[in-house]
Design a protein around this nucleic acid. Structure first.
Lengths: 226, 226
DNA sequence: ATTAAAAATTTCGTATACGAAATATGTGTT
DNA sequence: AACACATATTTCGTATACGAAATTTTTAAT
């Protein structure tokens, strides 16, 4: 399943840079992406920029407007919710698989991860918190040994990250999140799959609830008129 | 969530054509994709071909070889299994959502779909059977009203289709499949979610078992020596 | 006849060029 | 001033061009 490690092409590098720019909010939802400007600022030709934009479009990070060019996709609460809903089924399933397949040193790995999680909480850096949060869940996916889960969730995560960065501006109560992560790991290490699944389900549901609350809060706030 | 309908660009058209060529087995696993040849045969320049290949790479249908260019990805039983495993969690979940959200005319729609399914079985055309099978499941995803499920599954389905066409060569006992589909719908229409979920789970598990059996059968057959 | 090195060819990634459609600017009319 | 229409400019998608790396073919040496 692993591909040969190639030095990244300009197209891929451009994709990574643009994806990050979109997810971090440098491009606001609805903002147009000008190929010439991007090419100039990255000091590449328009060719890799154009290709990268096709990739972004395929993954839903930009979209056509019916006019010229593309814009960073508007963030829809619907999409955000659909991802969380999706996770509420997939994450507990990943736990079940992880229970069956986790490696011998899973406990140590988990301990280190939880430590890093709490460090991130203390750091008060939202970007750091979002990053480590994903690493925690990715660790579970890896234990689950199912490549489809891993690939699928990685793309979804970028969408979540974007919503967090752009709409919610910051992570949603990272401290309670890591308490919940700990509970999941505890149950999993004790071999109690049912409880581990339930804890994960509860974790996702609580995260959803909080995220939705923030979303409504932000949407309720009056937006400036141009 | 729906994007504005644009007349498809050459890049997108090329992507669709190549994806289909790969999934139908016109390009065998491991076979190289020559950009010049493809461009010439489609009567376009190499530019859209190059872009399309980037898209295929991102979705795992072709991969780098460490040498020049890309090849149609080898089909790994692992990937095939990982998709089925994934489905065994997602499909029952889609049923649960569909139960809550299916439209008023779901019953009629289902009836027509089942009818088409049986027609496909009678037709004895594997391509037709694979296509209608997907349509059935896609109908459920649509009822489920979760765009992430729909998008994710569409890509996965191409991978499944490819395995079917290239490795398994034909659909796996389509007739029992539609008996199972009928059972799912019956339970769903009676409002018995639990049973509908179980039937769907059983359906996927049986499909997996059959596909795996075919896979082993094919792999066991001695391959010709060059 | 093998093998090694050199030269020629292929083929990719990326840059540049071009035409068309979309958008912006200007000009004239009322 | 407000609008209609013409003209200029921008910007995209795609074609073509170019340089470099990979691959094949040729040539030369043992």
């Amino acid at each position: 399943m692993q591909t040969i490690e190639q030095p990244k092409s300009l197209t891929e590098q451009t994709y990574d840079i643009l994806l990050n720019a979109i997810c971090s909010g440098e491009f606001e939802p609805g903002e147009r992406l000008n190929q010439d400007e991007i090419a100039a600022s990255l000091k590449v030709s328009r060719q890799p920029v154009n290709s990268a934009i096709s990739l972004l479009k395929a993954n839903g990070f930009v979209e056509d407007t019916g006019r010229r060019g593309v814009v960073a996709s508007p963030i829809s609460p619907e999409q955000f919710l659909s991802i969380y809903e999706f996770r509420s089924a997939v994450e507990p399933f990943a736990i079940r698989l992880a229970h069956e397949r986790k490696p011998a040193d899973a406990a140590q790995e988990a301990e280190m991860m939880l430590k890093r999680g709490w460090e991130a909480v203390r750091s008060n850096d939202p970007h750091q918190q979002i990053a480590v949060d994903f690493e925690f869940h990715e660790m579970i996916y890896t234990w689950a040994g199912n490549d489809t889960i891993q690939t699928t969730m990685r793309t979804n995560w970028h969408h979540i990250r974007r919503s967090m960065a752009v709409v919610v501006r910051g992570v949603v109560s990272a401290d309670t999140s890591w308490t919940e992560h700990s509970r999941v790991i505890e149950a999993l290490m004790q071999g109690d799959v049912e409880r581990a699944e339930d804890e994960m389900k509860a974790h996702i549901d609580r995260a959803t609830a909080k995220a939705v609350a923030r979303l409504l809060e932000v949407n309720a706030a009056p937006s400036e008129v141009p």
